[in-house]
Computed example of a mutant assay.
Amino acid sequence: MGRPLLVGILNITADSFSDGGRYLAAEDAVAHARRLWSEGADIVELGPAASHPGAQQVTAAEETRRLTVVIDRLIAEGVPVSVDSFLPETQRFAAARGAMYVNDIQGFPDPAQYEELADTDCRLIVMHSVQRMGPATQMKTDPAAVWAGIEEFFAERLAALEAAGIGRERLVIDPGLGYFLGTSPEPSLRVLAHLEQLKARFDVPVLVSPSRKSFLRTLTGSSLSEIGPATLAAELYAACHGADYIRTHDVAAIRDALTVFNALDAAKVGA
């Protein structure tokens, strides 16, 4: 199976749904980033603003203020960094500061920005969300309709980015999970069950982030504090079915699960 790259989530926010306020101070954020790195993260992703429904709006100036000390220290220590922001000013800052990835939950919607993105070296994580079709309460939740929307979105967006001079080798796609796909678990389950089809369709690396997502809590009836086992099951399934990147809060759990899984697979082959 190999192993997908593990992206450790570091929310430098006041209101993230799972750990808001814990890492707002730069020293706390750096310490947690180092912990994620030591646990096996291949990349540490810094999120300066929450993205769940009802999250506070954060200006680009505030995002860069939250990021500056943390990104500078991590890059100086040789830690590969991704920055999760849909604000062009923050994306520009991240690329100039040495981020290896920029993750846009809106999927880089502004063609006027593409020429500038083409001149950077960072890879672009292009995320799909049904929120672009309307408020969360009006999202389509039919799995087939959501899947068709995902294919249409990536076909159009990847073509536009490539036409602007952004090499396909720099692109990573994220189909979105949880509330990004609707208000019921079924669209997220459909996506995870068809990751190999998504990879075959677009021939670019795929990132998924089921970690602590609402669809798992709805499916299992578990609280946020109890959602670790369900998260791990979804992550391991994704890893076994073609995910190239797993974006997670608990790096150590999926690292150990993959280590055991691959050891068992190797033992079977050698038997």
Rank of each mutant, 00 (worst) to 15 (best):
residue 3 R to F: 00
residue 20 G to N: 07
residue 127 M to P: 04
residue 16 S to C: 11
residue 36 L to E: 02
residue 124 L to C: 12
residue 147 W to C: 04
residue 173 I to W: 11
residue 163 A to T: 10
residue 168 R to V: 11
residue 245 Y to V: 01
residue 255 R to I: 00
residue 205 P to T: 06
residue 139 M to F: 09
residue 83 V to C: 00
residue 110 D to A: 12
residue 124 L to M: 15
residue 243 A to V: 09
residue 133 M to V: 04
residue 41 A to R: 06
residue 70 V to I: 12
residue 254 I to C: 01
residue 245 Y to G: 02
residue 140 K to L: 04
residue 175 P to G: 09
residue 157 R to A: 05
residue 26 A to C: 09
residue 119 D to L: 14
residue 135 P to N: 13
residue 95 A to M: 14
residue 94 A to D: 03
residue 217 R to H: 02
residue 39 E to I: 02
residue 211 S to E: 07
residue 268 K to W: 12
residue 107 G to D: 10
residue 79 V to L: 09
residue 61 A to T: 15
residue 254 I to W: 00
residue 149 G to D: 15
residue 199 K to N: 05
residue 7 V to R: 01
residue 119 D to T: 12
residue 126 V to L: 14
residue 174 D to T: 08
residue 229 P to D: 01
residue 96 A to F: 09
residue 38 S to L: 03
residue 186 E to A: 15
residue 10 L to S: 04
residue 250 D to S: 06
residue 150 I to W: 02
residue 80 P to M: 06
residue 52 H to I: 04
residue 105 I to L: 12
residue 153 F to P: 05
residue 174 D to I: 02
residue 262 N to F: 00
residue 77 E to P: 13
residue 89 E to T: 14
residue 223 S to Q: 15
residue 90 T to V: 11
residue 114 Y to I: 10
residue 161 L to G: 05
residue 71 I to L: 13
residue 31 A to K: 15
residue 95 A to H: 01
residue 199 K to Y: 07
residue 168 R to A: 09
residue 4 P to H: 02
residue 17 F to G: 01
residue 250 D to W: 00
residue 262 N to Q: 14
residue 98 G to F: 11
residue 88 P to F: 10
residue 180 F to G: 00
residue 20 G to P: 10
residue 139 M to R: 11
residue 110 D to C: 03
residue 84 D to R: 03
residue 17 F to I: 06
residue 80 P to L: 07
residue 23 Y to M: 07
residue 185 P to L: 08
residue 166 I to W: 03
residue 110 D to T: 09
residue 262 N to V: 09
residue 213 K to L: 10
residue 222 S to F: 06
residue 210 P to D: 07
residue 144 A to K: 14
residue 119 D to N: 14
residue 216 L to S: 03
residue 179 Y to W: 05
residue 127 M to L: 10
residue 32 H to W: 13
residue 176 G to I: 03
residue 40 G to E: 02
residue 115 E to I: 01
residue 104 D to R: 11
residue 264 L to P: 06
residue 229 P to H: 03
residue 210 P to V: 04
residue 92 R to F: 10
residue 107 G to A: 06
residue 55 A to W: 07
residue 96 A to K: 15
residue 140 K to V: 12
residue 115 E to F: 04
residue 191 V to D: 02
residue 156 E to G: 05
residue 196 E to T: 13
residue 201 R to V: 05
residue 245 Y to R: 00
residue 88 P to T: 09
residue 57 Q to R: 14
residue 204 V to Q: 07
residue 53 P to T: 03
residue 127 M to A: 09
residue 60 A to E: 14
residue 103 N to Q: 11
residue 64 T to D: 00
residue 83 V to H: 00
residue 247 R to I: 02
residue 188 S to M: 05
residue 187 P to T: 09
residue 134 G to K: 13
residue 162 E to H: 01
residue 223 S to I: 03
residue 137 T to E: 15
residue 183 T to M: 13
residue 61 A to C: 12
residue 168 R to L: 09
residue 245 Y to M: 04
residue 157 R to W: 12
residue 81 V to N: 01
residue 122 C to A: 15
residue 98 G to K: 05
residue 253 A to G: 08
residue 129 S to H: 06
residue 195 L to I: 05
residue 20 G to R: 10
residue 260 V to Q: 07
residue 246 I to Y: 00
residue 241 H to S: 08
